[in-house]
Design a binder for these strands. Structure first.
Lengths: 113, 113
DNA sequence: AGCTGACATAGACTACTGTCGATATAGACA
DNA sequence: TGTCTATATCGACAGTAGTCTATGTCAGCT
């Protein structure tokens, strides 16, 4: 499934019940956020001045093996929360702000509650 | 951990990196959202006129066993997304809008990006 | 008290996930 | 070409999560 299309067709949770297909797509993204290491990686990338972070810097921030971090980065990339770009020997990850915004919109509760 | 305290002390992901403890708390909630059945249950409750839904109605909305639905409701309640109230023979679940709002705030990206 | 219906809990089973070490791949450079 | 560094992929293993059946608990009713 195309990463950014996972979210774009789902109304806010509080507007109407999600159908099974919408729920499956959205759940993929929330599941990616449902791990402490991935949340920390995402916040490192999201809060980093310049908007992008080298994998080597992320590795340094954790006491986990390099393959483990690589795995988590892949999960975040596969659901469309991050993008990766290789430049020379290094790979830089960057937030996809639209994805976060979509999720945030999904969680909005109507004013009339 | 107290359900509503899981979220209240965490800044937006894009402001500063989460520490391990914050990430663990927030991840619990996102993990609860990372299942299609739970997302659908949540959206059923959140979008229901009157704000509360009887368990029996939720059961009817799925082709899953009653204990499975009960399990998912417990997960959502344990992380503070739903509350339950028994009245006579029936149990009614209700959304905790503040929890959704907190999550939504966590995902907000600063204007300056 | 006993029965019935609504919901929760317990235990088992399968499938998935996070982690690791080992290995592959890609680029820079001598 | 060969080597070194950075990152990704593979395969294995332990722990976790979703589902089920069986059973327990609670409230209302006869």
């Amino acid at each position: 499934m195309e990463p950014l299309q996972i979210l774009e067709c789902s109304p806010p949770l509080a507007r109407e019940p999600l159908d099974a297909e919408q729920a499956a797509g959205v759940a993929r993204v929330f599941k990616a956020l449902g791990d402490p290491v991935r949340l920390r990686i995402l916040s490192i990338v999201a809060s980093h001045a310049g908007g992008e972070v080298c994998v080597c810097d992320i590795n340094d921030a954790f006491e986990l093996s390099q393959p483990t971090i690589s795995h988590h980065l892949k999960v975040l990339k596969d659901v469309g929360l991050l993008t990766a770009e290789r430049r020379a020997s290094w790979v830089y990850y960057r937030l996809v702000p639209e994805a976060l915004a979509e999720l945030s919109g999904l969680l909005n509760t109507p004013v009339t509650v």
